Lab assay of single mutants.
Amino acid sequence: CKVCGDVASGFHYGVHACEGCKGFFRRSIQQNIQYKKCLKNENCSIMRMNRNRCQQCRFKKCLSVGMSR
């Protein structure tokens, strides 16, 4: 997965992504979610083991690796 490094389940929203990141991105855009501000200057490292800790940084990384509708 380009977002968290887990095993990708396919090509989702323009990038190779796992089911977790695919679902997270889908919910984020469909529900237009505004995530809580990052407590670490929006510089969190997103990996499989910690991908749920900072939703703002995870969504930012989804966009930075090329995920789009």
Rank of each mutant, 00 (worst) to 15 (best):
A17K: 00
R26V: 08
G23S: 15
G5M: 10
R27H: 15
K37P: 15
N50P: 07
K40C: 04
V7C: 06
Q55I: 05
S64P: 01
V3D: 02
V3W: 00
Q55V: 07
L63A: 11
N41G: 12
F25G: 01
E42K: 11
D6A: 13
F25H: 06
K36S: 14
C1R: 08
C4D: 14
R26W: 15
C38A: 03
S68N: 14
C18V: 02
A8C: 06
M47L: 12
N32V: 04
A8S: 09
L39R: 10
S64A: 12
G10D: 07
C18H: 03
R69V: 15
N50M: 05
N50G: 08
K36L: 07
R48G: 13
R53C: 15
R48Y: 13
R51F: 06
F24M: 04
S68K: 12
R48E: 14
S68D: 12
H16P: 11
V65F: 03
R53Y: 15
R51I: 07
C62R: 04
D6F: 03
L39F: 05
F59D: 02
R26F: 08
R51T: 10
K2S: 08
G14D: 05
V3G: 03
H12S: 09
S45V: 12
K2N: 12
F25I: 10
L39Y: 12
A17G: 04
Q31W: 07
M49N: 13
G5K: 06
S28C: 14
H12D: 07
G5C: 02
K36P: 10
R51E: 11
Y13W: 10
N41K: 12
C18P: 00
L63Q: 08
F25N: 04
R53M: 13
S64G: 06
E19M: 01
K2P: 03
V7N: 12
R69F: 15
M47C: 07
C57A: 03
Q30F: 04
K2L: 06
N41R: 06
N52M: 07
R26S: 11
N43C: 11
M47A: 12
I29S: 03
M49S: 13
R26L: 10
I29R: 05
R51D: 15
K61Y: 05
Y35F: 14
C62V: 04
K40E: 13
A8G: 05
M49G: 13
E42D: 12
F59C: 02
V15G: 06
K61S: 02
D6M: 08
E19L: 01
A17V: 10
F24T: 07
I46A: 12
Q31A: 06
C4M: 02
S68I: 11
I29A: 03
F59T: 06
K40P: 06
I46S: 08
C54R: 04
K37Y: 04
G5R: 01
S68T: 12
Q55F: 04
I46E: 07
Q56F: 12
R48Q: 14
M47N: 14
M49T: 14
M49Y: 14
C4P: 01
E19D: 14
N32T: 07
K2G: 04
H12R: 03
Q56A: 15
R69A: 15
R53T: 13
E19A: 05
V7R: 13
M49E: 14
M67L: 01
H12A: 09
F24E: 04
Q30G: 05
C18E: 01
V3Q: 00
G14T: 01
F25D: 03
A17P: 00
S68L: 05
G5A: 04
K40Q: 14
F59A: 05
Q56R: 11
G14P: 01
C44Y: 10
K37D: 15
R27I: 15
Q31T: 09
N43D: 10
A17W: 03
D6R: 01
G66L: 07
C57K: 04
M47H: 13
E42H: 09
S28G: 03
K61V: 01
K60F: 13
R48C: 07
M47S: 14
K37F: 01
H12M: 00
N52A: 15
C62T: 00
R27S: 06
H16C: 07
N52T: 02
Q55L: 12
H12Y: 09
S64N: 08
R26A: 14
N32D: 10
C54D: 03
F25A: 03
R53P: 14
M47F: 06
Q31N: 06
G10V: 11
K2Y: 03
V7G: 07
Y13H: 10
S9F: 04
V3I: 09
I29H: 00
I29C: 08
S68Q: 15
M67H: 00
N50C: 04
R58C: 15
G5V: 01
C57N: 00
K2H: 00
E42F: 02
Q55K: 10
G5D: 04
M49P: 10
L39V: 13
R58D: 05
V15K: 03
Q30W: 04
M67I: 04
K37L: 07
E42A: 10
N32H: 05
A17Y: 00
V15F: 00
K36R: 05
H16L: 13
K36V: 09
L63I: 15
K37R: 08
R48S: 12
D6P: 03
K40V: 09
E42L: 01
S68E: 11
K61P: 00
G66S: 09
C4L: 00
C54V: 03
R69C: 12
M49L: 12
V7D: 12
R27E: 14
N32W: 01
N50L: 07
F24I: 00
R27Y: 02
N50H: 05
F25Q: 02
Q30K: 10
S64F: 06
N50T: 11
M67A: 05
Q31K: 08
K2Q: 12
I33A: 08
S28R: 00
Y13L: 07
G5Q: 06
K36D: 07
R27D: 14
I46H: 10
V15Y: 06
R27F: 05
K37T: 09
I46P: 13
R53H: 13
R26H: 08
G14V: 00
R48I: 14
G14F: 05
